[in-house]
Write a protein that binds this DNA or RNA. Structure first.
Lengths: 131, 131
DNA sequence: ATAACTGCAAATGTTTTGCTGGAAG
DNA sequence: CTTCCAGCAAAACATTTGCAGTTAT
């Protein structure tokens, strides 16, 4: 994090670094408000975009869901529970050769891929209730 | 397609079956309007949802983009050009064992996965212009 | 001075919904 | 009669933007 960041930007980043979770913009907003009650949503959005562009955080754009943000870590895949909507990080190693393989076959210049698993998490699987 | 579908629903489905492309809801709307000029967007959205729920079409919810719809075909992966936004189907075979493998390791009940490659398509790669 | 940043409110763009009337079974 | 579906307009929703004032360099 750049030392000369504003209080607001630092607060946004710190919320994401401390969260062991993937937060939506609105959740970040609610969290930051606890420290900076006068912060506005516009500022949160502006800072999230800036931090993402700069690579300090990652934006998770999963299928048919709100964008979620997470503190920067190594690339990894995600599991989405279609019952409760929770998002989990997976330990599954990222397949680094996949891009090159598909690039050769398809002719497209591939920069990265995005892999997401969907189903029901253990919690939802145990309760019989669905949705 | 159910024989007793309405004219409107049939038109939506037929647009998607004939398109060799992935259309946004709005593009479907514009296309259907050529045949049924008085159709409303609400109707297009309602029918897209119904057709998707029923499995007659697939909804592509790619990272950070509008949902696109395609006529039903075998599962396949997609490539998204980050320069022009185009979406291409890939021939790459779907990895059917992946779900079971990750399910065993993670403990989540995995129903399916979603794999999407991103980069620059050949056309954009040749022109030096970006975005 | 100038550039970057803020709060606020308004605008944007996609998708959903309420309502009322019509068509189908 | 009852259910489904239509058009239309309004609502909902996340996100972006314009503006005028503030802070930092």
């Amino acid at each position: 994090m750049a030392r000369d960041d504003t209080v607001h930007r630092k607060a946004v980043l710190s919320v994401l670094d401390e969260a062991r979770w993937h937060l939506t913009a609105d959740e970040v907003y609610e969290e930051v408000k606890k420290t900076l009650p006068r912060i506005s949503k516009g500022t949160v959005y502006r800072n999230l975009r800036k931090l993402r562009d700069r690579g300090d955080i990652a934006a998770l754009e999963l299928s048919g869901a709100l964008t979620r943000f997470e503190g920067r870590r190594e690339p990894h895949y995600h599991f989405v529970c279609e019952s409760c909507g929770c998002v989990f990080d997976l330990d599954e190693p990222v397949d680094h050769e996949l891009n090159a393989r598909v690039e050769k076959k398809s002719g497209f210049r591939i920069a990265y891929h995005h892999l997401e698993f969907r189903g029901r998490c253990s919690g939802c699987e145990n309760m019989q209730t669905r949705h």
